[in-house]
């Protein structure tokens, strides 16, 4: 079973700090998102059971070192990697991402199963898997917590709060996974060294037969500010009882209590 796993390198969110309500992303390293690592691990596990090839398909989106960072996917066990890197894709919307990915999947050719994380760690729209399935006309199963190959089909399990659902789709198909599906392995040094010699291609939009105009964003982000945290900085003195009284009175005064 040939599997393509779509991964995106995102700014490492843990490393982003907020200064004057704006996220400081300068010098923040990029990394493959955690959910995408789950998808990669699922692909590697499926390959172990069903054979075939795993290709990591990475969208650079503004990461100038994407071709370097994607090697983590190769170290985790992908056989090949493809990076889509084009200045026109520096800040794409979900439609543009899906269009580019779908075109790349077509170009890769052999693909029985297309895996995604349920959402990316930066925007978490959760749209891209479904959009790609729609463009390619493939069946899609979302939020899988278990994936197995069954004959010419993929069987997935997903949690629907009060019940477990088991779904099957004929291949080729698109599946998005949730974090419960597995514990991604941390690649060891040998795996990292071996990843160096695995095939890695970088494609531009032209390589995919697309032009920038087709992928122009349909919306513009005007402002993106962290929530303002306005604290009252009121300290209460006295005994515990006095403090409690003062605290309750202050809450009433603020209109938080006793409405």
């Amino acid at each position: 079973m040939d599997i393509v796993v779509c991964v995106k390198t995102n700014p490492d969110l843990q490393m982003v700090r907020v200064k004057d309500r704006v996220a400081v992303t300068e010098a923040v390293p990029y990394k493959i998102g955690d959910l995408e690592k789950n998808a990669l691990q699922a692909a590697v596990d499926l390959r172990a059971a069903a054979g075939g090839k795993v290709t990591a398909l990475c969208l650079a989106v503004g990461n100038r070192k994407a071709a370097e960072d994607v090697k983590v996917a190769l170290a985790m066990g992908a056989d090949e990697a493809v990076v889509i890197d084009d200045p026109a894709l520096a800040a794409p919307d979900q439609a543009a991402v899906a269009t580019a990915l779908a075109a790349a999947v077509k170009k890769i050719g052999a693909c029985d199963l297309l895996l995604f994380g349920e959402g990316s760690t930066d925007n978490y729209s959760g749209q891209v898997g479904a959009r790609v399935a729609e463009i390619l006309g493939l069946p899609q199963i979302g939020y899988a917590r278990k994936v197995e190959a069954v004959g010419g089909a993929v069987r997935c399990e997903r949690s629907m709060d009060d019940m477990l659902e088991t779904l099957e789709a004929p291949l080729p198909a698109v599946v998005t996974v949730v974090s419960e599906i597995n514990e991604p392995t941390i690649p060891g040094l040998m795996q990292i060294m071996k990843a160096k010699s695995k095939p890695l291609q970088v494609w531009s939009l032209a390589d995919l037969g697309l032009d920038a105009a087709q992928l122009a964003p349909t919306r513009e982000i005007v402002s993106n500010l962290a929530e303002e945290q306005d604290r009252k900085h009121i300290l209460f003195d006295g005994s515990a009882a006095e403090q409690a009284d003062a605290f309750v009175n202050a809450l009433i005064k603020e209109g938080v209590l006793g409405r």
């Binding site: 843990q14 490393m15 700090r17 923040v28 941390i186």
Partner: peptide, 8 residues
């Protein structure tokens, strides 16, 4: 590797 403090 991958864990512990990471100074920015």
């Amino acid at each position: 590797g991958q864990f512990g403090v990471q100074y920015r």
